[in-house]
Simulated scan of single mutants.
Amino acid sequence: MQHLQVRLRALGVATYAISGSPLHADRALARHDRIRFPIIQDRTFAIGRDYGVYGGQRMPMDAHAIIVVNAQGRIILAAEPTDMHVPRATIWRAAQHAGGR
């Protein structure tokens, strides 16, 4: 996601990571991967449940989801990759659609 930040901002799309990991682990990951967007702590996984990812259950520490939501709150993309990878082109197309372009 970090690689798409300039292009996403140009579309008016904001990026946030939502994590149930301990704060110290998220900070270490952000430093290691040079993540420059906010990481929101969600230790109860309530946000994921609200968006219908992880089956509403506790997320395994090595899993993630990518959700693109438009300004009206409609989900454009919800991907729970098993291999920790969603193609950038897929995210980009969803972001363009969410931004109305």
Rank of each mutant, 00 (worst) to 15 (best):
H3V: 09
R31P: 07
R27N: 03
M61E: 12
I76R: 08
A89R: 14
Q5H: 05
Y51Q: 01
P38D: 05
R27V: 10
A71K: 11
G20N: 05
L4G: 07
G56C: 07
H97Y: 09
P22I: 11
R31L: 14
A65I: 09
A30S: 13
R88M: 11
I66S: 10
H64S: 04
D62V: 00
I75V: 15
R43T: 13
Q72P: 00
R43A: 15
H24D: 13
I40G: 01
I67A: 10
T82K: 13
I91H: 01
L4H: 00
L29G: 09
I91V: 15
A25D: 12
V53L: 02
Y16R: 06
G52T: 05
A30T: 05
R34W: 06
Q57C: 07
Y51S: 03
G20M: 04
I39Q: 12
F37K: 04
I75P: 04
A89T: 12
Q5K: 11
D62K: 00
A78E: 02
Q41T: 13
H24C: 07
F45I: 12
A71Q: 07
A79C: 08
G56P: 06
G12V: 01
A17T: 09
R34M: 06
I75K: 02
T82H: 11
G99S: 06
D26G: 03
Q5Y: 04
A79H: 13
R9H: 13
R49T: 12
L23T: 12
Y54F: 15
T90D: 14
A79L: 12
H97P: 00
H97V: 14
Y54T: 10
I66F: 10
V86C: 02
R88W: 12
I76D: 01
P81L: 08
Q5G: 06
G20S: 07
G73N: 04
P22M: 08
H64P: 03
V53M: 05
H85F: 06
L4K: 05
D50P: 01
T90K: 12
A79D: 14
Q5F: 03
A95E: 08
R74E: 08
I39A: 06
R74W: 04
Q2H: 10
F45W: 15
